[in-house]
């Protein structure tokens, strides 16, 4: 019950200050616009490798910005309030689920913006959508935990990217690989194994985050 309340609270706060969400979307649009301007007359250079790498780099930095604010930048004293009110697990999962939704919104809008300004070479739409859903879960559970750690250090924003980047590279490489398969239209057989690995990594990282979060929260 608490969990749903907390998620509802996150969504309400987000709706109340649209500036953050709008800022993230604007970040996506301006990044893709820069790509559009750079590639303007050389769209042919935008092959499968380049498209998938660009898509994931752009989305990943949007994810970091989205994930960072789950604990960094919360008003002073809020954490003490939560500490008395809810269990750390409920808090963690509410943030992870909310961030997953947010990352999915970001990735799907990123896909749309890429399609509008550059091109949409994805052939296996279904697999790619599944990939986005899986990636959003994995990234959000990692980034939520990292944000919890980083929020307790000095210069949190630098620490946030330093901590999360190496941890998610494995996931990111997998995403790029599957995206390439989706662009080439290789179908299920080619991507199945990689999707399973991604799922396994997700489960592994979420479980670890679940185990570790209470210790971070206590301090």
């Amino acid at each position: 019950m608490n969990l749903f309340r907390l998620i509802e609270k996150e969504i309400r706060i987000e709706m109340a200050r649209m500036a953050v969400l709008a800022g993230l979307l604007l970040y996506l649009i301006s990044t893709v616009f820069i790509l559009y301007v750079s590639f303007q007359f050389r769209q042919n250079l935008l092959n499968a490798v380049v498209w998938s790498a660009l898509f994931w780099v752009v989305s990943f930095f949007a994810f970091i910005n989205a994930g960072a604010k789950s604990f960094i930048g919360e008003k002073k004293g809020t954490d003490v309030y939560y500490y008395w009110l809810v269990s750390p697990e409920a808090l963690l999962f509410s943030k992870i689920i909310y961030n997953t939704l947010l990352c999915m919104v970001l990735a799907f809008s990123g896909w749309l913006i890429f399609g509008l300004l550059l091109s949409n070479p994805i052939e296996d739409t279904l697999i790619f959508s599944l990939l986005i859903a899986l990636a959003a879960t994995g990234f959000s559970s990692t980034l939520t935990l990292m944000s919890g750690i980083a929020s307790r250090s000095g210069n949190s924003h630098v620490v946030m990217s330093v901590l999360s980047l190496p941890v998610v590279i494995g996931m990111l490489l997998n995403c790029v690989k599957i995206t390439r398969n989706c662009i080439d239209g290789l179908g299920w057989d080619a991507s199945q194994g990689h999707l399973l690995v991604l799922l396994a990594i997700n489960v592994l990282l979420t479980a670890t985050a679940y185990l570790l979060f209470p210790y971070i929260w206590r301090s």
Binding site: L163, L204, T208, Y215, S219
Partner: peptide, 12 residues
């Protein structure tokens, strides 16, 4: 914090 990150990093 670093103990938590150490374990998480190893798993990753």
């Amino acid at each position: 914090l670093s103990a938590a990150y150490n374990i998480f990093a190893f798993v990753a």
